[in-house]
Design a protein around this nucleic acid. Structure first.
Lengths: 191, 191
DNA sequence: GAAAAATGTTGAACAAGTTCAACTAGCCAA
DNA sequence: TTGGCTAGTTGAACTTGTTCAACATTTTTC
């Protein structure tokens, strides 16, 4: 079974009984996805929520000017979803692309609803997870305002060494909100 | 009773029975706060979650360079909280200042826990609210990357005319992540 | 293993945004 | 009424980041 990581991740947020964990896990289906393939593309409706077991994903949008803005990267032990599209069944603005051969656990919308209804503590679990995520988005916004691109770059590679080492500079630049040419110049100036 | 607005706000997210709404409301205590006073200051522990009935607040942090970064403004019908400090009882990084004489409904930590435990649907309510908030933070980050300061300024005053009309340019600049001198120059160039 | 495609580097000219300083205007308190 | 705050404006010099184009390097594809 490959649910150990999911169970561990859940227990970081809230302690569930073994019975509850079993039930939760049953709803999540293991899925493999090849490098460069998409789990979701802009314009389509997000039919799943996912948890990454192996590999790495890049979650990004393409704006009117054609620039790719990376919202976040999801490596092992990260969640992966377009809440808005998933909850409201509206077309997504996001693309989720595997950066390497990856394994994810997916749950579809109907099963997610069942899960919420049949195991009430799951509401609490996702409430807590969402609130934690909220805090980190707030902090990221502040960092974007308070730090220069160079500071943000070094913060990123220091804070997420496992993820950043898998990424091209172009992908990192998309996450930092700068052009990759400029990142190249930042790196040249050295720490 | 001044709970009408809160009830309305809750019902936008999830339909609760009148009985449940009554119970929820009981936990929220009306509080008044004068212009320029603080509901929370950086370094102290956030002991409440709040909902704004009247007036307007500015939620900001002061970074090492002494710059004020505004996370958001909370006017009538907005929620107001430092989840991280409130949940984990750690010192807050945030300041919450009334920009005019204001009225809020506050709930303390113990009561919030009670509320979660005694009315399970409240977990769902705050799960949904947090997820919606998450989406809007993600969108804001993308806007910050994809738009210039000028575009962000006009987006802000167009999207939040009621709030932005109450604010000084300095406060708006803090929200946009630019210096107020530059905002002054943006405005001069006209739409 | 060669061709094609994507990524990374560099430079020069440019645009966006900051800094600092000087000045204007409005507001409030005593 | 005066003095002291704070907000807003403007200009000049500066820093940060962009754009575009040319080239080098790595990765992918067949």
């Amino acid at each position: 079974m490959s649910y150990g990581l999911l169970i561990q991740n859940i227990n970081k947020n809230l302690n569930l009984s073994n019975k509850e964990l079993d039930l939760v896990c049953k709803y999540f289906k293991p899925t493999e996805i090849k490098k460069r393939e998409f789990l979701l593309t802009q314009g389509s409706i997000c039919k799943f929520e996912g948890f990454v077991l192996e590999g790495c994903f890049r979650i990004f949008t393409i704006d009117k000017k054609g620039n790719e803005n990376t919202l976040y990267f999801a490596a092992k032990d990260w969640w992966l979803m377009d809440i808005d599209s998933f909850m409201n069944q509206i077309p997504s603005n996001l693309n989720m692309q595997a950066l390497e051969d990856s394994k994810v656990l997916l749950i579809n919308r109907q099963d997610k609803m069942m899960l919420y209804n049949s195991i009430p503590i799951v509401e609490k679990l996702f409430r807590i997870m969402s609130q934690k995520a909220l805090v980190s988005w707030q902090r990221r916004l502040i960092r974007n305002h308070a730090f220069t691109a160079k500071e943000r770059y070094f913060y990123f590679i220091k804070t997420y060494p496992d993820i950043s080492s898998k990424l091209t500079d172009k992908q990192i630049a998309g996450y930092l909100g700068i052009r990759h040419e400029f990142l190249s110049k930042i790196k040249k100036t050295e720490k």
